[in-house]
């Protein structure tokens, strides 16, 4: 009896403190929004731009830090300006999209380093945005994550049909009269906002993992975009709870523990997934009557 209650206490102890609960709440909200936007990132092969926007936001974080402005606002402005710049440069110059990304995001990141290098003394606060400091998340951070995160989710729900169609087949969407350019810019802006609210909780360096890993894991399991979002969100929440708990017990950085938990879940799914896992059984391809004689499966 006492062994059971000991175990229960061992599992629940970490959650007794208010700052742990605050951290968990922040991570859970961030991982849900990241999984939803990350589904677009994964299916459209946008991981590089996700990483780029996170790094570019550092320029804004540093500028806001030095000028004493709002750090989130600085990050958002830098990320959104960089994403607009990437689309603009690649369209006008004829350079490849990933080339434009490579040029602009490193530029914005370098600007951040330049600004910080002029600062003397105490810049630890700044590094909480680079590597994440979820235990330092305060009440105002939580409110911001909740409000911006909810806004992102509501916009995705309202424009889901348009975002799906534009992501899947932009030419056909344009022919059907949908505002394709607005949707593509809008998608980048929503990804930028998602990164901004993740900065404090997971940090610039690791945020791309929160965008990509849960959604990628989900894509191994389910085959429709909205299901990838839902399953990805579940995996993100699970990673947050387990990772934060492990970081408390092992006294390691929370953001790294959460990301590594998600990575382990991905690898396990990759190995065991019934659909595409390398150890799972592949579904045998059985041709039905209706399928015969149409060129064979591809």
């Amino acid at each position: 009896m006492s062994a059971i209650s000991d175990l229960a206490a061992y599992l629940t102890d970490p959650w007794a403190s208010e700052f742990m609960l605050r951290s968990l709440l922040a991570l859970v909200m961030v991982s849900v929004v990241c999984a939803v936007m990350g589904s677009f990132v994964v299916v459209k092969g946008m991981a590089f731009i996700g990483d780029a926007l996170a790094h570019a936001s550092f320029g804004g974080v540093a500028a806001a830090f030095v000028l004493g402005g709002n750090i989130y606002l600085g990050a958002a402005v830098a990320a959104i300006l960089t994403s607009l710049g990437i689309v603009f440069v690649s369209r006008r110059s004829g350079l490849r999209f990933d080339t434009a990304i490579g040029v602009l995001f490193v530029g914005a990141f370098a600007l951040g380093i330049l600004i910080v290098s002029r600062q003397e003394g105490y810049i630890v606060d700044l590094f909480s945005f680079v590597f994440g400091n979820v235990l330092g998340v305060g009440q105002s951070d939580l409110v911001l994550i909740a409000v911006v995160g909810a806004t992102v989710l509501v916009l995705v729900a309202v424009f889901y049909k348009e975002l799906l169609f534009t992501a899947y087949d932009p030419a056909m969407a344009a022919a059907a009269g949908l505002p394709v350019a607005a949707m593509q810019y809008g998608l980048l802006a929503l990804i930028a906002l998602t990164i901004v609210i993740s900065l404090k909780a997971v940090g610039i360096v690791l945020v791309v993992a929160m965008l990509v890993t849960p959604a990628a894991t989900a894509q191994l399991l389910v085959q429709r975009l909205h299901l990838i979002m839902a399953v990805g969100a579940g995996i993100g929440i699970l990673s947050s709870v387990v990772g934060l708990y492990l970081s408390y017990r092992a006294d390691v950085a929370a953001s790294a523990a959460v990301v590594l938990t998600a990575t382990v879940i991905f690898l396990m799914t990759f190995l065991l997934s019934p659909r595409r896992g390398i150890l799972g059984l592949r579904r045998p391809s059985i041709l039905t009557k209706a399928e015969e004689g149409y060129g064979g499966p591809r």
């Binding site: 299916v43 309202v158 424009f159 049909k161 348009e162 799906l164 169609f165 992501a167 899947y168 087949d169 030419a171 056909m172 969407a173 022919a175 059907a176 009269g177 949908l178 505002p179 894509q219 389910v222 085959q223 429709r224 975009l225 299901l227 990838i228 591809r298």
Partner: peptide, 27 residues
């Protein structure tokens, strides 16, 4: 030009043919 790896079902793809008629914000 079609992304066949995209996670949509046959039904979803055909439904996209309706989207132009539906207009913004309508399900």
């Amino acid at each position: 030009l079609v992304d066949w790896a995209f996670p949509v079902s046959v039904f979803d793809v055909v439904m996209m043919g309706r989207y132009g008629r539906l207009g913004l914000l309508r399900s």
